[in-house]
Computed example of a mutant assay.
Amino acid sequence: MATASLPSDLDRRYGLVRQVVLPGPLPLDGGGSLSPVEIAYETYGTLAPDGGNAILICHALTGDQHVASIHPRTGKPGWWTRMVGAGRPIDPARHFVVCANVLGSCMGSSGPASVDPASGAHWGMAFPVITIRDMVRAQGLLLDHLGVARLRAVVGGSMGGMQALSWPATFPDRVEAAVVIAATARHTAQNIAFHEVGRQAVMADPLWRGGDYYASNEPPAAGLAVARMAAHITYLSEAGLTEKFGRRLQSREAKSFGFDADFQVESYLRHQGIAFVDRFDANSYLYITRAMDYFDLAEEHGGRLADAFRAVPARFCLVSFDTDWLYPTTESRRIVHALNAAGARASFVELSSPYGHDAFLLDSPELNRVVDGFLRADG
């Protein structure tokens, strides 16, 4: 039996965070299983009597379940209030919205920072290596608990888009529509390379201690900050960085001829790194980036991407951004071609934005119009 109850009316209205411990077992792609399974989540709106209005939102690498409510650690608004809320494309007045912290993360779901019930200690690096499909299976357990048999739609950007792709491929009878934004069907060598730089930065920090740093309360902050700085560059575009920072100096009239943050862009990246370590776990960063690197939807279905969608009745909406060099438009087109080859219903649009990969998180009226129109369509 699960140890958490269904959301109350108050939870549905205000999106209060909840946590459930499910008995499992959850089979894992790497072998073995996980049991029990902790999942932290938020819900917004009310599930319709026929269960036909549920939308699952999947978050990105460093995201969490606080999609449209105040983050308890940072005090900042939810990460996608531009998309979720009253009058937004995903509206709790029409939809029952679910967003779960992914397996392996550090905001309440089972991961290296959580406690292994068998030992009573933090999992650390003893936590099993996971995949995107494992994350999706865990979300399936949560939806079973919430009484959601079928999703009106699954929506996600970046790693959330990977989950949105994996959902209909894994549970073809449970998904009516998928919105995949700024995502890919598999990581390229360049994607893996950037992640490896970040992982090595974490593991080279003396405070990492092989992942066993929880008792000391001294996490490998310096290594994780560098990892975040390197990754954050990939989320932006050259045009956006030039427009925002150029070669302008930071709080000084001349170069220092030293190694302080002379340039504004250096100061910005250092701030991003420092802020990140206050809200994220280093081991979780290792596990989730590894899950993304292992993601290859074609490989999971015999080596041909179209075969992932052969028996999928869902309709798909693919969105890319013209300045996204992390998951460029060519990756979205590859998915669309596979969907077409499988006979799936698919629409695709490339939007223009100066903000690179992060454009899906920023103010984008065009993206809102695309998602709103797609979700309102009957299919």
Rank of each mutant, 00 (worst) to 15 (best):
residue 99 C to I: 08
residue 68 A to M: 13
residue 53 N to L: 12
residue 93 A to M: 05
residue 141 L to K: 00
residue 52 G to P: 14
residue 103 L to F: 09
residue 170 T to D: 10
residue 150 R to N: 06
residue 120 G to R: 06
residue 154 V to T: 11
residue 134 D to E: 05
residue 69 S to T: 15
residue 154 V to E: 11
residue 40 A to C: 08
residue 159 M to R: 01
residue 52 G to C: 11
residue 37 V to Q: 02
residue 152 R to T: 02
residue 108 G to L: 03
residue 96 F to D: 08
residue 136 V to S: 06
residue 134 D to Q: 03
residue 76 K to T: 03
residue 79 W to H: 03
residue 148 V to D: 09
residue 122 H to N: 11
residue 105 S to P: 02
residue 53 N to Y: 07
residue 170 T to R: 00
residue 94 R to W: 02
residue 113 A to D: 09
residue 88 R to H: 15
residue 148 V to A: 14
residue 76 K to F: 05
residue 42 E to T: 15
residue 160 G to D: 10
residue 42 E to S: 15
residue 158 S to W: 04
residue 73 R to A: 14
residue 37 V to K: 00
residue 104 G to C: 14
residue 105 S to D: 13
residue 154 V to N: 07
residue 141 L to W: 02
residue 100 A to N: 05
residue 91 D to Y: 02
residue 50 D to F: 06
residue 127 F to K: 04
residue 79 W to G: 05
residue 44 Y to H: 15
residue 65 Q to N: 13
residue 35 S to Y: 10
residue 96 F to I: 12
residue 116 D to H: 02
residue 120 G to V: 08
residue 48 A to Q: 09
residue 94 R to P: 01
residue 47 L to N: 08
residue 137 R to A: 09
residue 100 A to I: 01
residue 99 C to S: 12
residue 82 R to W: 08
residue 153 A to T: 04
residue 155 V to W: 03
residue 116 D to W: 00
residue 119 S to F: 07
residue 60 A to R: 00
